[in-house]
Amino acid sequence: MKKKTLAMIQPYVWLLPSVILMVSMILIPIVSVFKISFSDVGRSGIVRGLNGVQNYLDIFAEPTFWHTLQNTVIWTVVVVGVSTVFGFVLAMVLNQEFKGRKFVRAVVIFPWATALIIQSVIWKYIINADYGSLNILLKKIGLIDGFVNWTKTAGSMFGWECWVGIFVTFPFVTFCVLSGLQSIDGSLYESASVDGASFWQKLFKITLPLVAPSLTVSTVLNIIYVFNSFPIVWTISKGAPADQTHTLVTYLYQLSFTDGKGGHAAAVSVIGFVILAFCASIYMILSLRGEEES
């Protein structure tokens, strides 16, 4: 009897540390952020009491919020989309046999392995109009006469931020896809070639279906990482000019730590959480459906 009870309890005891960690580090902060988003918070951090949905109404009345939301969608779609396509193509190339393949593979991982903040600072200096190395290089090879201001408008500034996002994201896709490609049995391609299949037919009928699980994982993870990415936008522009280049994460950081509006920041945080939870749910539904079908 004792043995049986111990055997029943044991798994739960093992799980308890993880559960406590998750509750204290994830669940309690989430509940706390939800509560703060419905509270009146003073600039000095004092919670003066609940104020219903006032923080949300204030946020929705701000044109900056809607522009930021639009930026966040563009940022996520462009960075994840382009990184996925570019990463996939590069993985196909790196899967071929050629001299120096190992070296190229090692080089490709650098942008991903380097800290985001370092990448962002480096790119900020590269594109600087007064002393940036891009201008110096282009001038030396004679492509430009005078220095060009690459970040003159909000659009161009945001475009460069997207580029940096792509630059640091594509290696992850490349290596996810590469691992998928290496697991494909070469005999499939040989059989297809014998049957007279073209490159595109092999790509769409063999390669893509077989690397789809790797692509799905990298895309879902990238959506979460890129959506929540803070260092690139904050280091390069801090949302300038005139809050035109914010994403939700930098916007809520500014609200909280620069503007001292903790309640509004919590509301934006909850909105971001809901959007990501929605995306994650779609992924869960699709993958569960896939499992059932298989």
Partner: peptide, 16 residues
Amino acid sequence: CNSAPFTDTRYPLQDA
């Protein structure tokens, strides 16, 4: 002016 007055803080300007 310096080309990035929206993002240039006074520190790089002081250096310049």
